[in-house]
């Protein structure tokens, strides 16, 4: 019941490459959308559910990507080992900064995470000896899973979509667990959460690390898929884009985060026809959405559909009773 959406999405994702074989929007833009969806879901855990804003999420994405890129190109580590190292490294860094940073609230937390994101980006640019500086690192080897090389668009489509479904499954389970309830509780009132016996510091720290590690995993996959990384992909602007995805879909809605990621990825592709006005129209769409649907597009549509459905259900029930 809880996982119904997950099953539907699985069907859809499996069907798409059959319905549209060799379609650029499915296997190329779709894969980018998948990376964005994973990132948006991870950020939504922190922002949507726990209520802790982060303007530096791209940094964790970058840490995962650069760990894979560096270790596989410079030191010839096997890709999976490099990925694992990247995740552990990101977890340690996220844990170390979470304690001081999550004491802050609201704008101050936003500022601190923003600063962290910028620092990481500066390191990527400045440590050119290792990271290749602004030019980045190229020729990242192909990722192979048990001898199966992921070397085509279609294979990447399969791997990324599997990753999306896995993260979605993790999210849905987490949200409905004891931990998920604790997150929503501390979002509402930290004081009340403490009187319930929730260790708010530890809970916030746990979700911050979880969120960062998921982002790093996305980064590692992204590095192998692109076979090239540069600091531009992990900048402050990308952090803001991720926040936009989460807010656009609707805070505290996992499917909303996926929806936001899809919109933000595909909209620019569709707006290409407007050429020079593309960015302006993109901005206008975002503004209008936030003015008229501040709860997020996905959340509002879901509520309306649910209400409509219930109405139909009631009416059919009444007419059934009358006859």
């Amino acid at each position: 019941m809880r996982l119904r959406g997950l099953y539907l999405l699985t069907l859809l994702l499996v069907a798409l490459p059959f319905i549209f074989p060799d379609n650029y929007y499915v296997t190329v833009v779709g894969v980018t959308a998948a990376v964005h969806a994973i990132l948006a879901m991870s950020l939504n855990l922190l922002m949507g559910y726990a209520g802790q804003i982060s303007l530096g999420h791209a940094a964790f994405f970058g840490m995962g990507a650069y760990a894979s890129a560096l270790l596989t190109t410079r030191w010839d580590w096997p890709p999976l080992l490099a990925m694992l190292f990247g995740l552990i490294f990101t977890a340690v860094v996220a844990y170390l900064i979470s304690r001081p940073i999550l004491r802050l609230k609201g704008h101050y937390l936003a500022m601190a995470t923003l600063g962290f994101g910028i620092i990481v980006n500066i390191i990527l640019v400045q440590a050119g000896e290792y990271t290749g500086g602004p030019d980045g690192l190229s020729d990242i080897p192909v990722l192979a899973l048990f001898g199966w090389e992921i070397d085509s668009d279609l294979r990447w489509y399969g791997v990324m979509m599997a990753a999306v479904l896995l993260v979605l499954w993790l999210n849905l389970n987490l949200i409905h667990s004891r931990m998920g309830r604790a997150l929503r509780a501390l979002h509402t009132s930290e004081f009340a959460a403490e009187t319930m016996g929730i260790n708010t510091t530890a809970t916030k720290s746990t979700i911050f690390v979880t969120s960062a590690v998921i982002a790093a995993a996305a980064g590692s996959l992204f590095a192998h898929q692109q076979s090239f990384v540069s600091p531009g992909s992990f900048s402050f602007f990308f952090s803001i884009e991720l926040v936009t995805m989460v807010v656009l879909g609707g805070l505290a809605s996992t499917y909303g985060a996926i929806f936001g990621a899809i919109v933000i990825t595909f909209l620019p592709e569709l707006l290409v026809v407007f050429e020079d006005y593309e960015v302006m129209i993109f901005g206008a769409i975002l503004m209008l959405t936030m003015i008229f649907l501040p709860q997020g597009i996905y959340v509002v549509v879901e509520q309306r559909l649910l209400r409509w459905w219930q109405k139909c259900w009631l009416q059919s029930g009444e007419s059934g009773g009358a006859t």
Partner: peptide
Amino acid sequence: VPEGRELFRPLTVEDNLLLGSYA
């Protein structure tokens, strides 16, 4: 039971109750 009740207002009644058993 804190002053002013301090419920988790957006959460359901049942979620509020279950949060009581968090510890």
